[in-house]
Write a protein that binds this DNA or RNA. Sequence first.
DNA 1: AAGTGGTCTAGACCACCAA
DNA 2: TGGTGGTCTAGACCACTTC
Lengths: 233, 233
Amino acid sequence: MKLPRYIEIAKELEEKILNNTYKKNERLPAERILAEEYNVTRVTIRNAIEHLVLKGFLEKKVGSGNYVKKNTLNLNISEQLSFSEKSHFLKQTPRTDVIEFKEISGDAKLMEIFNCDSNEVFFFIKRVRYLDNTPVNLENTYLPKSLFPNLTKDIMKGSKYDFVEKTLSIKESYNKITPILPNEELSQLFNLTSCEPIFYKTSIGISKKDIPFEYSELYFNPNIYEFTFTSKR
Amino acid sequence: MKLPRYIEIAKELEEKILNNTYKKNERLPAERILAEEYNVTRVTIRNAIEHLVLKGFLEKKVGSGNYVKKNTLNLNISEQLSFSEKSHFLKQTPRTDVIEFKEISGDAKLMEIFNCDSNEVFFFIKRVRYLDNTPVNLENTYLPKSLFPNLTKDIMKGSKYDFVEKTLSIKESYNKITPILPNEELSQLFNLTSCEPIFYKTSIGISKKDIPFEYSELYFNPNIYEFTFTSKR
DNA sequence: AAGTGGTCTAGACCACCAA
DNA sequence: TGGTGGTCTAGACCACTTC
């Protein structure tokens, strides 16, 4: 599995941001300098930097330089960051609790998503993620047992995608965000006082063989997550 | 105001998509072909195409080609498209109603956003946008009178940004999306039956001189807008 | 096997920002 | 004014799909 050079460089730069070699709000070395350092052209460096801008690590300033984004307390729903990556960036301690782990048969919705009949069995896993003991989100995951026969509760205490990628290659996922009113369980978990709506994201994971391998529902704690973005021009 | 060549090319390609020279789901000419047609290198064509992918007009398929995205009925909140652009793409007739147009004095929130005292006067404009007579969103705009002394109700029936850009250059805008429960006015306007939450976006516009020139609030009709995205890898 | 987009080299000139 | 990112040229090889 040979990764493009610009992805490798992006990972090395990310590591240097995480371990504070490049500090918050500081300017990165100029693109021409980095190109020399890594023995590539500026195009390759610019690809790596663009990658990190999309991940929310860097910010560009024309005529000035590329800067390490200052730490935002809130998590941003639109960023494509894994939970553990973000918590490392925020210097907070992550924890995942598996609330429920059971086998279920598919309802109409699952049968449609996974294009299967009613004999298919699914793992249903309900998890809550914490940062420094504050619940940040609640996730329901549905995984077909036929694809992941060896799944256990212990595995789901760790990274779901690390496990999934031992079995198959992920191609992409289809996501949809909807505003919903939290039920009693969510209100209590997130300590919501009034009747305030929250963000809810559904996600269908597709493997490189074009087979759906996952359906998940994610509920965001509105006190932690916000959804902001800056648009230019 | 000389635009980069890739932006010019993106506009020409967009025009060809809108007037059906390149049809829905059809493949665009290969990047090498386009490069020859426009007398530029492939890098420039790729920049133009990337631009149109971000605007939601095109879709890439490795080893196959770049395709015109099929028409989606719903508007997508995450796309950076202007209202008139999107309605043209959807082949629906847009209309803007100015519901309210008045002068107000700033409250604490406006005074903080615009960094001004209580003497500053603002235009408050409430508008509803329609596609084929279906209300798609409701917008409240706050503009400082000192910046736009000549603003009239008639002007606001047209494009807000066309007007603003006659006075100043826009640098960027800060946006935040929140889920809220609609009030009675919104429920009736969007014909919402139950107690369903909707998306609400606030936006602060900043000029190239780093002066805030606009604050706006946008309420989305949940029957029209959806918020979906595909993430790779 | 031919054609496609993905990545990359080795340069160049420009507009913008800071000192 | 010197340095920065933004844009662009004119090529090349690769991995992938199948026009």
